[in-house]
Design a protein around this nucleic acid. Structure first.
Length: 166
DNA sequence: GCCAACGTTGGC
DNA sequence: GCCAACGTTGGC
């Protein structure tokens, strides 16, 4: 689950312990929360739009079927005037802190790890703020957080633009 | 700030 | 139902 740390980061979750995951306004992301998640499911807390972006902590699903209250709040940026209280459109989950990781596992490390090849969050153009994670990938990231970061791979050669060869 | 990717909106 | 315009996400 992604969040921008400027808005709500792992330290906020450390402070409040449990947080309703409000503000998701993408149907696919909502469907993962509404239809796939179960109480007790493990969560990777990912910092997006951060420097650097990466996995900052672990959490778990504490409650499902949570009505996102911001959809009915005209003052909220997530207000949805088309959603009706008797048939709420935006359903989320309560996310409870498991623990903050001993260090942030940065996106470039995730990309460099062979164990994470094929992980959804690394796919090109992947923007969903809520997405499934394979158990093996979850475990690999927890293990990475317990080790020192691997040195960054050398920068790839120019990836676009015209060639200046010869 | 740029921009690729992609979701949503709305005219037709 | 098509699809162009537009808005958002999120890395860089």
């Amino acid at each position: 689950m992604k969040s921008e740390p400027d808005a709500f980061g792992i330290d906020d979750l450390v402070r409040v312990k449990v947080e309703p995951w409000t503000g998701v306004r993408n149907y696919q992301a909502r469907n993962f929360m509404r239809d796939q998640m179960r109480v007790g499911d493990r969560v990777l807390f990912y910092h997006s739009n951060a420097t650097p972006p990466g996995v900052a902590g672990l959490a778990r699903v504490a409650r499902t079927g949570v009505v996102d209250a911001t959809q009915f709040d005209p003052a909220s940026p997530y207000y949805d005037p088309a959603s009706r209280p008797d048939e709420p459109r935006w359903i989320c989950v309560d996310v409870e802190l498991e623990r903050k990781l001993p260090r942030l596992v940065a996106l470039d490390e995730l990309r460099a790890s062979p164990a994470l090849a094929g992980m959804l969050v690394l796919a090109r153009g992947q923007r969903l703020s809520v997405q499934p994670v394979e158990a093996a990938h979850y475990k690999a990231i927890v293990a990475m957080a317990g080790r020192a970061p691997v040195a960054a791979a050398p920068a790839p050669a120019a990836k676009r633009g015209r060639s200046s060869a010869r």
